[in-house]
Design a protein around this nucleic acid. Structure first.
Length: 659
RNA sequence: GCGCCCAUAGCUCAGCUGGAUAGAGCAACGGACUUCUAAUCCGUAGGUCGCAGGUUCGAAUCCUGCUGGGCGUGCCA
């Protein structure tokens, strides 16, 4: 039972009577959980705007509404407060009834949707040629959680990992393999060597690019220097507005000069890193055309060159295996993993199809689609004949529509690609997929403490596996320290401690990501990511473990509790508050899907766990004075534990019985 | 230049799409372990919601302008 939905149902007819049937839906949206416990459990705020519209006093309108709505069984109290708020207090009897019903329900009182749809979820999608780094975590974890939630609510979901397995990076690896491979290292650990080759080639390409940029960059600095000196010479005019404008221009010129110098520094640093290393500089000297050559290797791969194709087929499974290890750790699964290469044969057809539809045309040698709303075109074929990711994405949509008849496609990709998706959706809707809803589930960038995109000192993105390892290690230390300090001595075997550390460590990393509003950038911090207190997955896991501990200490069989005829009774205010929160699980899940934001679920679970902690402090279970209260509280504990475990599971986070 | 996004407590962030006295978590301070796990709980302190206007019964939330920041911006993905 979704209480909010039930309230809306009850109010609907009353609102039609009072307001006429115009726009009842938007009035119903104004029924929501109370902001403050003093105002009851829910509040309806529709009387104020309605009063305005009808030219009546809002409090009178509120009274009219209340006179028309039947809440006798549902609410124990209905108040009109302030300017015309309708405050609603759910009746204890009704709540007791519902919580007992939910307790007997496998789905914890959450109903399946009545309008099931087919969703394609496109998430994670790493480039298989490089090791996964922190940047991949958000897409992976958010996408996984959305897939789980949609499924639970009854939708069809196809989780697709759209791997980057066909792009420029493979040309770079192939070039690296042909010229720099260390056969022994490759034999020992293929992926490690391939990733070294990728970084090496990347570094060499950067070297030549940077070297070319140094001179223009220096010129740019000189120009800015001159401009700055000129601005500094300008005397104040006495006119306040003018002077303010001038001082702003001056400040901007200084900033820009500083930033230009910084860019130059980083260019020279890149060059110096190679020049100072005899081995690397010898490589660089021997491969001055490496940038172009790597692109050529890619082009040859795409054209079906047998050597490159063979290398690609050799490398790909190994790279995929490597990535799979990370997914196994994260407990993330996909239904399909069609990489970009999968669509390769469709690409010429996409271009010709768009040409025939009159949407694509040639411009500067490339096949372009010009859209009214955008200055720059969507390029679907380069002047050298190669296809781009826009082409692949269009082919992918075509395939997904034919294969799954998708109602909706969600792309969980960071916000920097928003323009690409706007163009993509516009083209696909106009061309081959008119009916499908497509959404870019964008998320912010992971920043470092100074607000820049997160990188290690050497400029590489930080590896994901190392991060996970550290989180698990830290969790192990905390588990051990906590267990060692237990009043009656340690309880956990080392094996158990390791298992707990695994669940807690991975949970901490995932939760740190999921608990942020996905649209905002967030500052990456080891301490925050691995925090095990406060609003963290650990807090919920701990609550769950406390529930299990009660059962263990009391030698209580969970099955016996669940089948017991003693119903849950809500006497203590902490019991009632906890029960109310449990009942709101389905609201939380609806909120997640409203805007595809898993942080709605983390917020809910944190609230629920807080209510449980408060209950735990105030309401003894095993030592309850009456047997009936004990049985009731055991049931309430069990139900809390089930909701926490279930909610965490929808976030892709596990629980343990002891910690 | 143009486009998109952001600005909330010392720090990191919520704020349910316009509701009542703006909330958490860290950090700080003061309390609570002979009582089902103190990875916890209770309390104190901390705010001109970037600035200025506007819309209305009511604005952190919507609109306009400004300031400061991020990202994107024709052949990478």
């Amino acid at each position: 039972m979704n209480i909010l939905a039930e309230l809306k149902n009850r109010f609907r007819d009353a609102l039609v009577d009072v307001a006429g049937d115009s726009d009842v839906q938007s009035l119903l949206e104004m029924i929501k959980p109370a902001q403050d416990a003093r105002f009851g459990d829910y509040q309806a705020n529709c009387a104020m705007p309605l009063g305005k519209r009808l030219g009546k006093a809002p409090r009178d309108v509120a009274a009219d509404i209340l006179a028309n709505v039947n809440l006798d069984d549902l609410c124990s109290e209905t108040d009109i407060a302030g300017p015309g708020f309708i405050n609603l207090t759910i009746s204890d009897d009704w709540l007791t009834n519902q919580i007992n019903t939910a307790g007997e329900d496998e789905r914890l009182g959450v109903e399946s949707t009545t309008h099931a749809q087919t969703y394609i979820l496109d998430y994670s999608s790493p480039n298989v040629a490089k090791p996964m780094h922190v940047g991949h975590i958000r897409s992976t974890v958010i996408g996984d959680s959305l897939a789980r939630t949609l499924r639970f609510l009854g939708h069809q979901v196809v989780a697709d990992n759209h791997l980057g397995d066909w792009g420029t990076q493979f040309g770079m690896i192939i070039y690296g393999y042909k010229h720099f491979v260390d056969p022994k290292a490759y034999q020992q650990h293929e992926v490690k060597e391939l990733s070294r080759l990728y970084r090496l080639v990347n570094q060499l390409i950067d070297y030549w690019k940077s070297k070319q940029q140094i001179e223009p960059q220096q010129d740019d600095i000189n120009r800015r220097q001159v401009e700055l000196e000129r601005l500094e010479q300008v005397q104040p005019t006495g006119d306040k507005k003018e002077d303010k404008k001038h001082s702003k221009a001056l400040g901007r010129a200084r900033d820009q000069l500083a930033s230009a110098r910084k860019t130059l520094d980083s260019l020279t640093a890149k060059v110096a890193a190679i020049d100072s290393d005899p081995q690397l500089s010898a490589y660089a000297e021997a491969h001055p055309e490496i940038g172009r050559s790597a692109l050529l290797e890619t082009a040859q791969l795409h054209e079906g060159d047998s050597t490159n194709r063979q290398l690609w087929e050799e490398f790909l499974p190994k790279c995929r295996e490597d990535i799979q290890r990370v997914y196994a750790r994260l407990n993330v699964q996909f239904d399909v993993e069609y990489g970009e290469s999968f669509y390769q044969e469709m690409l010429p057809g996409v271009v010709s199809g768009l040409q025939e539809a009159g949407m694509a045309s040639e411009s500067e040698g490339a096949q372009c689609i010009f859209l009214d709303e955008f200055e720059t075109p969507m390029i679907i074929q380069k002047s050298d004949g190669a296809f781009l990711y826009a082409t692949t994405d269009l082919a992918t949509i075509e395939y997904r529509m034919q294969t799954w008849q998708a109602d909706e496609i969600l792309y969980v990709v960071d916000h920097r690609q928003s323009e690409h998706f706007q163009k993509l959706f516009a083209v696909a809707n106009a061309w081959n997929a008119p009916d499908v809803q497509m959404h870019h589930i964008s998320f912010g960038t992971v920043l470092d403490e100074s607000g820049r995109p997160y990188k290690t000192r050497s400029g590489d993105a930080i590896g994901l596996e190392g991060l996970l390892d550290e989180a698990v290690n830290k969790a192990y230390e905390v588990v051990s320290a906590n267990d060692d300090s237990k009043p009656n001595g340690a309880e956990l075997s080392d094996e158990t401690r390791k298992h707990i550390a695994d669940v807690v460590g991975h949970g901490a990393i995932k939760y740190a990501d999921l608990s942020h509003n996905r649209t905002s950038d967030y500052v990456f911090s080891y301490d925050k990511m691995m925090a095990l207190e406060g609003n963290t997955a650990t807090y919920m896991q701990y609550s769950y473990a406390r529930v299990q501990s009660i059962f263990r200490k009391g030698n209580v069989e969970i099955d016996q509790v669940r089948t017991s005829v003693q119903p849950i009774v809500l006497e203590h205010s902490a019991e009632r508050a906890l029960a109310m929160m449990i009942m709101r699980y389905s609201e939380a899940l609806e909120n997640v899907l409203e805007d595809y934001r898993p942080n709605q679920l983390t917020n809910y679970l944190f609230d629920l766990a807080k209510r449980f902690s408060s209950f735990f402090e105030q309401c003894p279970v095993l030592k309850a004075e009456q047997e009936s209260v004990k049985q009731s509280r055991l049931k309430l504990c069990d139900l809390t534990g089930r909701v926490i475990a279930h909610g965490l599971q929808l976030l892709g986070i596990g629980v343990v019985d002891q910690m």
